[in-house]
């Protein structure tokens, strides 16, 4: 899924990473799925890990990233806010 040049906010990127990492994921899978370069991907993952939203673990010599329970509040709030703002805004029709 190539989405080069798509402008997302940092919260949208956090949300994408957190929902994707609900199952443990490799770094390369995260950056590929969330369309990030490795430098940005590492920065986002480091930030989320520092906040306690992502847990880094090792399995068979591979580093895996998984979303923690602490991230649930953020994911839920993001989902709620985006659905509400979409519903409460005017609709485009032709």
């Amino acid at each position: 899924m190539a989405r080069r040049g798509i402008k997302r906010t940092q919260y949208e990127i956090y949300w994408e990473i957190l929902t994707y990492c609900e199952s443990p994921r490799l770094f390369t899978s995260v950056i590929q799925r969330c369309d990030l370069n490795s430098r940005n991907g590492q920065e986002y993952l480091d930030f989320l890990e520092k906040k306690g939203y992502i847990l880094r673990s090792s399995e068979g010599g591979k580093t895996l990233y998984s979303t923690t329970q602490a991230a649930k509040e953020f994911v839920e709030l993001f989902t709620k806010l985006y659905l509400e703002l979409y519903e409460n805004s005017p609709e485009f029709k032709i």
Partner: peptide, 18 residues
Amino acid sequence: DRRVLAGLVARLAAHYRS
């Protein structure tokens, strides 16, 4: 899944921004 729907709304927002 409401989260998938929120993700699609975020995608559409990003598409408009871009």
